[in-house]
């Protein structure tokens, strides 16, 4: 299969590989996928004042899965969590020119950021708006 230049770039030079401290109350962690399916993504965000100030990922999966998660961490940095929540797999697939058989990789990346945001909100036991108020 031929990969797009952008997929190859993210695969070769993945952005934001790594881990944030899971127990940090400002960190939200999303782990999605399953080893049996050949894809597992761990995406973490660090939120301050309702804004994502840092993002890290680790991905087990094909090159398109790695690229999708790498791209999402790049996109969400500096974004308000309400904005990040609106990222859709279509945008990811489009940006990386994913072929139809790899669309599920972009779906997984969307799921991962949503799961990370959800985790962050769960930690704070309230909706995002409240966090913005208390965070400052």
């Amino acid at each position: 299969m031929a990969y797009s230049d952008k997929v190859i770039d993210h695969y070769e030079n993945p952005r934001n590989v790594g881990s944030l401290d899971k127990s940090d109350p400002d960190v939200g962690t999303g782990i999605v996928g399953a080893p049996a399916c050949g894809d597992v993504m761990k995406l973490q965000i660090k939120v301050q004042d309702g804004v994502i100030v840092d993002a890290k990922f680790k991905t087990y999966g094909c090159g398109s899965a790695i690229a999708s998660s790498s791209l999402v961490t790049e996109w969400v940095k500096g974004m308000a969590i309400d904005e990040a929540e609106k990222i859709q797999n279509k945008q990811i697939a489009e940006e990386l020119s994913l072929p139809p058989v790899k669309i599920h990789c972009s779906v997984l990346a969307e799921d991962a950021i949503k799961a990370a945001i959800e985790d962050y909100r769960r930690k704070h036991g309230a909706a995002g708006a409240d966090q913005e108020a208390t965070g400052s």
């Binding site: 990969y3 190859i8 695969y11 050949g38 894809d39 087990y60 999966g61 094909c62 090159g63 899965a65 790695i66």
Partner: peptide
């Protein structure tokens, strides 16, 4: 173990 074959081939 712990890495996916296609990503390895890509590398």
């Amino acid at each position: 173990k712990y890495i996916e074959g296609e990503s390895l081939i890509m590398g």
